[in-house]
């Protein structure tokens, strides 16, 4: 199945016959290597963020995340995510519906285009909006005459974030909906259900966990995007700085502890969303047997 990130259902595979499973020793070694690798590559940097954040004590930590500039950066980050995520969610559902339920030519190219923002350098993602909306850009003079400011203001930051997070929901849903096929929807249609009814009553319940996971990842990325946003932000303190940019500024002001404190805030936001995801998955696993007995 195609999919950069794909939902993982909770089917326990450990119930396989004993003779297919590896011996305990092999299992132990493999788990060990996997943990070691994750520890070295992912956990260690995270741990260092927290260690640095608390280096100067809890007081500095709290001060740095409640300082006005930090709060305004947090606010801007939340606003940006609040716009970018719903927009991309609607897009993701529409794109997945078109791609998975119908056949048409050029589907591969369409999927490739949806994937493209994954592979485009963040530097370029920012640059393209400067080329379009910058004062020297293609639309710049026209916008300027009308007093519309896109880059170096909130709309530009939103656009860059939307660009970067385009694929997340769509990529999550496409393989899932492809695997589910169209039988259920067709059955509903033959029973006389209308379009939105089919979607709302048949499709959505089937994809809701995948959708949620896509939304969570999309949100995490939207809040954490640095490169593209840095190009279009203008870095005005307290106005166009998002959290990742605020972190960079603090770091450049030699306020290392404060910068890591704010970074840890982002990590925690991510961790919280991931915990929510786990809970949701666990609940969905519990619901399944219940649904069967209904």
């Amino acid at each position: 199945m195609a999919g950069a990130i794909t939902v993982h259902t909770n089917e326990e595979t450990s119930k396989r016959p004993q003779h297919i499973n590896e011996s305990a020793l092999v299992r132990f070694v493999l788990i060990g290597i996997a943990m070691l690798f994750l520890g070295l590559v992912v956990l260690l940097p995270l741990a260092s963020v927290f260690v640095e954040a608390f280096k100067k004590g809890v007081g500095v930590y709290i001060d740095s995340i409640t300082e006005p500039d930090a709060l305004s950066a947090l606010k801007l980050t939340l606003i940006v995510a609040l716009i970018a995520v719903p927009v991309n969610t609607i897009f993701g559902v529409a794109a997945a519906w078109a791609i998975s339920k119908f056949r048409f030519r050029g589907k591969n190219i369409l999927i490739t285009l949806i994937d493209l923002p994954f592979a485009v350098s963040p530097v370029i993602s920012g640059l393209i909006y400067v080329l379009l909306f910058g004062a020297q850009g293609f639309l710049g003079p026209w916008l300027d005459e009308r007093g519309i400011q896109i880059i170096f203001a909130v709309p530009g930051i939103v656009l860059a974030t939307v660009f970067v997070t385009v694929p997340f929901v769509a990529r999550e849903l496409i393989p899932l909906m492809q695997a589910q096929g169209v039988q259920e929807e067709e059955a509903a249609a033959s029973l006389g259900a209308k379009g939105w009814q089919i979607f709302w009553k048949v499709t959505l319940p089937n994809i809701k966990w995948g959708l949620l996971y896509g939304v969570i990842l999309c949100n995490a990325r939207a809040m954490g995007e640095f490169g593209a946003v840095s190009v279009v932000s203008g870095h005005i303190r307290g106005e166009t700085n998002t959290l990742p940019l605020h972190i960079e500024i603090l770091y450049n002001e030699y306020q290392f502890s404060a910068s890591f404190a704010v970074a840890s805030l982002l990590v925690m936001l991510a961790v919280v969303t991931l915990i929510v995801k786990s809970i949701v998955e666990w609940k969905s696993a519990q619901q399944k047997p219940a649904a069967i007995t209904e």
Partner: peptide, 24 residues
């Protein structure tokens, strides 16, 4: 629910437009 979806879409369109014009 259908109207629900419609209003959601209209809302979204509004948000988009607002995002584009808000700064203006």
């Amino acid at each position: 629910k259908i109207t629900h979806v419609r209003s959601a879409i209209i809302l979204l369109a509004l948000v988009l437009v607002l995002a584009a014009c808000g700064q203006g």
